[in-house]
Amino acid sequence: MNERFVLRNVRRVNEELVDIVIEDGHIAELEEAGKGVGAQAIDGSGLYVSSGWIDLHVHAFPEFDPYGDEIDEIGVKQGVTTIVDAGSCGSDRIADLAASREQASTNLFALLNISRIGLKRIDELSDLSWIDSEQVKQAVRAHQDFIVGLKARISKSVVRESGIEPLRMARELSRETSLPVMVHIGSGPPDINDIVPLLAPNDVITHYLNGKANNLFDSEGRPLEVLTDAIARGVKLDVGHGTASFSFKVAEAAKRHNIRFNTISTDIYRGNRLNGPVHSMSHVLSKFLYLGYTLEEIIAAVTNRPAAWLGKPELGRIQAGDEANLTLFTVTDEPTTFVDSEGDTRLGSQRIEAKGVFVHGKFIEC
């Protein structure tokens, strides 16, 4: 769409109605609703618009089973214009993942798994010899435009007898590469009280609402001291819903105690996209409407907040002169049953549904 056209009467999440004038794939003007001028007008009445959604935790390397999927299946077809592969590949295969961007409409970045084998097997940190510091640093240098952080999955099934040592090695690699670490938490050991104190400002805890015994809240639903301390020093909290890492009971406790997310991500891959409980970014966001978060806070968690963490604020804004990077969606009053990773259900009254994206100069319908 290289001509000048107007996306008319779309609603921003603050409920403001606007016209967005797009020319040569860029936002030319933001106008009061009904005032935009262009050769073609597209009626966006009934649609919300935000900057393109960003999913900070996906698995987009389809060769690795079970944790893999096609880039655009979990990207633009979901209303998500930018995805971050969260450690599918280590240094052995990161070049292949980087090359896969060429065939995709979705923007793709990556967190480099500190294990060189990545998710070729699911106990990738059980052998410390697979953590090759020089290969990590070489991969980071070779893919500076692509690798945005490091990934360490610190749970029992991944580290086995290696314990906390992989996280200590990740911390040192973070220092040497100047990249933050996203840490997956789950079943222990290692104990959560040993994991969280090792995290630094701008590191990310993903799966922070998981319902496993080794989680971040006590039996009464109160946040552990290591969690409140981490938040105070600037550690970020990411949802990372996934197949086994989101609990309504924990999410409800977190909200009661004002332990709020920085980012909402899906941890999506083929299995939990097709069979649930994730299904889509829209479906995950709808669960947070049920939990009582405002639409503005929910959408910020997939737009300007992850964009800021990525160091790419332009991805999280709608501003004249920027590339048109937009997600169009609806919020519908409709009873919807939601299922968490524990099999618990909740009946919501609203759902979010992505309708399309503008990215790289074209409109793609969801």
Score class of each variant (00 low, 15 high):
residue 6 V to L: 11
residue 6 V to I: 09
residue 8 R to I: 00
residue 11 R to L: 12
residue 17 L to D: 04
residue 27 I to F: 04
residue 36 G to L: 07
residue 40 Q to H: 14
residue 45 S to K: 15
residue 51 S to E: 05
residue 54 I to T: 05
residue 55 D to A: 04
residue 61 F to E: 05
residue 69 D to Q: 07
residue 71 I to M: 09
residue 72 D to E: 11
residue 74 I to Q: 07
residue 76 V to Q: 07
residue 85 D to V: 08
residue 86 A to V: 13
residue 89 C to T: 13
residue 93 R to Q: 12
residue 95 A to Y: 00
residue 99 A to P: 01
residue 102 E to M: 03
residue 109 F to A: 10
residue 112 L to H: 06
residue 113 N to D: 13
residue 115 S to I: 07
residue 133 S to Y: 02
residue 136 V to C: 14
residue 137 K to W: 00
residue 138 Q to I: 02
residue 146 F to I: 03
residue 159 V to N: 04
residue 161 E to M: 05
residue 168 R to D: 00
residue 178 S to N: 15
residue 189 P to E: 09
residue 191 D to C: 04
residue 201 P to F: 08
residue 202 N to F: 06
residue 204 V to R: 08
residue 215 N to D: 02
residue 216 L to G: 04
residue 238 D to A: 11
residue 245 S to P: 10
residue 252 E to N: 08
residue 252 E to D: 06
residue 254 A to D: 10
residue 263 T to H: 11
residue 276 G to L: 12
residue 276 G to E: 12
residue 281 M to G: 02
residue 286 S to M: 13
residue 291 L to S: 09
residue 292 G to K: 12
residue 293 Y to P: 03
residue 300 A to Q: 13
residue 301 A to N: 02
residue 302 V to S: 10
residue 320 A to N: 05
residue 324 A to I: 08
residue 333 D to V: 13
residue 348 G to S: 07
residue 349 S to Y: 09
residue 350 Q to F: 09
residue 356 G to C: 09
residue 363 F to T: 00
residue 365 E to I: 07
